[in-house]
Design a protein around this nucleic acid. Structure first.
Length: 463
RNA sequence: UCCUCGAUAGCUCAACGGUAGAGCAUCCGGCUGUUAACCGGAGGGUUGCUGGUUCGAAUCCAGCUCGGGGAGCCA
């Protein structure tokens, strides 16, 4: 007899009710009395567990009654309607095989654990309700992203994880090297001689696939990357990790407006898909993690995202009369408190802030007519902050070179990037979506460490 | 990196200068429909680490380590 997935028992109950079946899973809890007992069995395929009823007639009844939480078992029996109110059906066991015993020091209990504690046992936490739900939603959301782009003719590009460009400008990078630490070779100037290194030059882990994916955009029209990204920033917040996943679409013959339209459609698509595909998990989040979750997500689905230019946002913030800790001034980047006020108080929904001063944005963003601002856009989400950052790219070679000179960038390093402007360059735009921030937004989880399987943060690379 | 709060049994917490406790978990026993099962009993501690103050420190002080919340950097 094949093992049946508990998911199928719940989704196709008619097919299995009153039938002999076999299931395998991990014990969540055992409640036993003298002559019978109950096991909550979870096999990881479904949010809910299956109640197994077992009786004295089992030849190994005493062993089963003493099963420790976490043990792996295989149960054969008949699926019957349950007299209990809390489950529609239950499995009446005829035979239970212990696959792997747990131990009395198994750290997970059937009561609530703090997320802080569960982080210290990241290898076991996916067996809990919350993390079971988080990581199933994460998987579904990843699929939804691919589905969204593939249905629209986007080509999925694998950009390199190891990069040789040393100035992508998005933050501190992790060095990639095979040079020893004891006898680092030096050149005549006493500097590290990277010509002796594996790649013959200085290399790092990527902080963004954008520059690379732009090259494929100029060949495939609509492309996206979806992969790991690394930042060696000493950031100690609930929203930052040293290793995270990022989605970066790039579209040709498109401007900033097209870019924002794409971002909004994508966000709505992912939310709908996840809500439709993981109703049990989403219900759990709405009930136990964030009681305003459904209201918030429904509101996003039904409303148009807000739009406001940076300059107008500054004026709105000044007008608000709110007493901010940091000054609101044109030319200064918006502080977290300003972003929150915009998205939470003024708009009450996700809002695009556009056309930032060029000084606070990256070199590749397209210069606006005014010569002071660039065609950038950040999507600010209530509760999560900046979830998307993007722009229309500067396709005019002379503008781009001028900007790179102003910032003192080495144009030789970017010849391939500049070539895109020499050989049939066109308007194009794109953005970066922080995948973990999206998961936080979808689930109501408030710490990025709790939406990544094995989080890497300053002073923490366990597991 | 900065500000702030915290670290006591496996977990969640109490004790706040005078013998370190509870609930849950674990172990033993009981119980014929449980579902955070219930009832009885038992074991379980270098109070994060190092030093200091004191007759006496989980408790007061300093440094360190790690963690939470907030900020910067960003996604």
């Amino acid at each position: 007899m094949d093992v049946v997935l508990i998911r199928d028992l719940f989704r196709q109950t008619d097919k299995y009710i009153n039938q002999s079946i076999k299931v395998g899973g991990w014990v969540r809890t055992v409640r036993a009395s003298k002559a019978f007992g109950f096991i909550e069995l979870n096999d990881g395929t479904f949010f809910s567990s299956l109640q197994v009823v077992f009786e004295e007639s089992l030849n190994n009844f005493k062993d089963i009654a003493k099963l420790i939480t976490g043990s792996a078992i295989i149960v054969e029996g008949v699926l019957v309607e349950s007299p209990g109110a809390k489950q529609p059906f239950e499995l009446k066991a005829q035979n239970i095989v212990i696959e792997g015993l747990s131990s009395q020091d198994y750290p997970l209990q059937k009561k609530r654990h703090s997320f802080e504690f569960l982080r210290t046992i990241a290898h076991l936490r996916p067996r809990t309700n919350t993390f079971s739900a988080v990581f199933r939603v994460r998987s579904i959301a990843a699929y939804a992203i691919h589905k969204f782009f593939q249905e629209r003719g986007f080509v999925y590009v694998h950009t390199p994880v190891i990069t040789g460009s040393d100035a992508e400008g998005a933050g501190e990078m992790f060095r990639v090297t095979t040079l020893g630490f004891d006898q680092t070779p030096r050149n005549e100037q006493g500097k590290v001689d990277f010509s002796k290194d594996f790649f013959g030059k200085e290399t790092n882990l990527t902080v963004s696939g954008q520059l690379n994916v732009e090259t494929y955009c100029m060949a495939f029209n609509k492309v996206y990357t979806f992969g790991p990204t690394f930042r060696a920033e000493n950031s100690n917040t609930a929203r930052h990790a040293a290793e995270f996943w990022m989605i970066e679409p790039e579209i040709a013959f498109a401007d900033l407006g097209d870019n924002m339209k794409l971002a909004e459609e994508m966000m709505k698509y992912i939310i709908s898909y996840v809500m439709d595909t993981a109703p049990e998990e989403m219900n759990f989040f709405n009930s136990f993690i964030d009681k305003s979750l459904f209201n918030r997500l429904e509101n996003v689905l039904q409303s148009e995202f807000g739009h406001i230019a940076y300059t107008d946002a500054i004026n709105e913030l000044k007008k608000s009369g709110e007493n901010f800790d940091y000054p609101v001034k044109w030319g200064y980047d918006l502080q977290t408190e300003h972003e929150r006020y915009l998205s939470e108080k003024i708009f009450g929904k996700p809002v695009f802030v556009t056309d930032y001063p060029k000084e606070i944005k990256a070199f590749y963003m397209r210069m606006n007519e005014d010569g002071k601002t660039v065609a950038a856009m950040d999507l600010l989400a209530p509760g999560v902050g900046e979830i998307i950052g993007g722009s229309q790219r500067e396709e005019r070679l002379d503008y781009l070179e001028k900007r790179m000179d102003e910032l003192g960038l080495n144009k030789d390093e970017y010849q391939w990037y500049l070539d895109l402007r020499r050989y049939g360059g066109t308007r194009h735009a794109g953005f970066g979506l922080g995948f973990e921030r999206l998961i936080m937004y979808l689930t109501g989880m408030t710490n990025i460490r709790d939406v990544i399987s094995f989080p890497r943060t300053p002073k923490n690379a366990e597991f």
